[in-house]
Simulated scan of single mutants.
Amino acid sequence: MVRLYTDDLSIAYDDRLIVKELSVEIPDQKITTIIGPNGCGKSTLLKAITRIISHQSGSVVLDGKNVAKENTKQLAKKMAILPQTPESASGLTVGELVSYGRFPYQTGFGRLSKKDFEVIEWALQVTGTSEFKYSPVDALSGGQRQRVWIAMALAQETEIIFLDEPTTYLDMAHQLEVLELLQKLNQDEKRTIVMVLHDLNQAARFADYIIALKEGEIVKAGSCHEVITQEVLQDVFNINAEIGVDPRTNKPMCITYNLLKGD
């Protein structure tokens, strides 16, 4: 049984249609990456699935229920999203930021319960950010901040986590650190991870399932071996790519490429 899918989903900004009657299934307890050129609808799709923005037609279905009709707090217990450029209020400590993940579970005056504090400590520990608990978020490096935001998403105790370009602005080491953390969460905690990535080799290395978008439509969806091919990359990115095999993972990798030019 597929827990999360879209059915003929169309999303528009003003009069411009960004995503066109898109139907896609998200594999449960797997890592899914969404790739495609700038402006093709990747981030828009994530926002619509998580109800940050509304859609024009079609539906998003989670556990047999239409997401658009789901109670906000109940939905926040099932799905968490880390936006592309998250911003926190100036002066917040790491512990305070992570505690915001417990909002869907708070009642009355919003005081944190013993269970809330236990989950916060667990999220800090899993992401390796416990030592920063009392430090201002603004004082951390980019990689440390990204791990803290992931800790906040984990504190929501959702089974599905969406991330919009989680490696943006990070150096190579910190990119790998974040992606390995997400992989560990998937393997150890059975979290379903859905993320937008620009780096094709990172997408191939870490994903179980890849969705390639172009102009709001799916060009190809499947395993990395099915999607990271010369034909698909030519169609999606207008490039002539040389595809090899990663000697460490045996997964396909883009070795080099040229931009295809029209006649």
Rank of each mutant, 00 (worst) to 15 (best):
residue 2 V to I: 09
residue 204 A to Y: 04
residue 233 L to Y: 01
residue 224 C to E: 14
residue 225 H to R: 12
residue 96 E to N: 06
residue 77 K to W: 07
residue 83 P to L: 08
residue 247 P to W: 05
residue 262 G to F: 12
residue 23 S to R: 02
residue 61 V to L: 08
residue 121 E to F: 00
residue 38 N to C: 12
residue 155 A to T: 04
residue 255 I to S: 01
residue 257 Y to S: 14
residue 174 H to E: 08
residue 88 S to W: 06
residue 177 E to Q: 14
residue 104 P to L: 12
residue 31 I to K: 11
residue 119 V to Y: 00
residue 97 L to G: 09
residue 149 W to Y: 11
residue 97 L to A: 12
residue 206 F to I: 09
residue 204 A to S: 15
residue 188 D to V: 14
residue 195 M to W: 08
residue 161 I to A: 08
residue 248 R to S: 15
residue 263 D to I: 06
residue 187 Q to I: 02
residue 52 I to G: 03
residue 140 L to Q: 08
residue 36 G to K: 10
residue 125 Q to M: 10
residue 188 D to Q: 15
residue 255 I to F: 04
residue 129 T to K: 12
residue 42 K to A: 01
residue 226 E to M: 01
residue 177 E to K: 13
residue 61 V to Y: 13
residue 201 N to V: 15
residue 207 A to R: 07
residue 233 L to K: 02
residue 224 C to N: 14
residue 204 A to G: 02
residue 47 K to D: 07
residue 33 T to A: 10
residue 235 D to P: 00
residue 186 N to F: 05
residue 92 L to N: 07
residue 186 N to G: 09
residue 201 N to F: 11
residue 189 E to Q: 15
residue 93 T to L: 04
residue 99 S to V: 07
residue 45 L to V: 09
residue 74 Q to A: 11
residue 199 D to C: 12
residue 241 A to H: 10
residue 166 P to Y: 04
residue 206 F to T: 01
residue 155 A to N: 06
residue 38 N to Y: 04
residue 62 L to N: 03
residue 202 Q to M: 15
residue 160 I to P: 12
residue 86 P to N: 06
residue 151 A to R: 03
residue 152 M to H: 04
residue 2 V to S: 13
residue 153 A to D: 04
residue 145 R to K: 15
residue 57 S to Y: 10
residue 246 D to L: 05
residue 187 Q to S: 12
residue 80 A to N: 05
residue 231 E to S: 13
residue 24 V to T: 09
residue 201 N to K: 14
residue 154 L to K: 07
residue 131 E to R: 11
residue 186 N to K: 14
residue 47 K to A: 10
residue 54 S to T: 05
residue 39 G to S: 01
residue 140 L to E: 03
residue 255 I to D: 04
residue 187 Q to D: 11
residue 218 I to T: 13
residue 170 L to Q: 11
residue 158 T to G: 11
residue 183 Q to F: 01
residue 86 P to V: 00
residue 80 A to T: 06
residue 35 I to E: 09
residue 54 S to R: 09
residue 209 Y to A: 07
residue 246 D to E: 07
residue 35 I to W: 06
residue 111 R to Y: 01
residue 4 L to A: 04
residue 253 M to L: 15
residue 178 V to A: 13
residue 113 S to G: 05
residue 193 I to W: 11
residue 33 T to Y: 00
residue 129 T to E: 05
residue 158 T to P: 09
residue 85 T to L: 14
residue 221 A to S: 12
residue 260 L to D: 08
residue 84 Q to S: 10
residue 157 E to G: 09
residue 72 T to H: 07
residue 141 S to T: 09
residue 55 H to N: 11
residue 232 V to A: 01
residue 260 L to P: 05
residue 37 P to H: 06
residue 204 A to K: 08
residue 202 Q to H: 15
residue 18 I to S: 08
residue 76 A to K: 03
residue 217 E to D: 01
residue 100 Y to A: 02
residue 245 V to I: 15
residue 27 P to W: 01
residue 207 A to Y: 03
residue 51 R to M: 08
residue 165 E to Y: 05
residue 32 T to A: 06
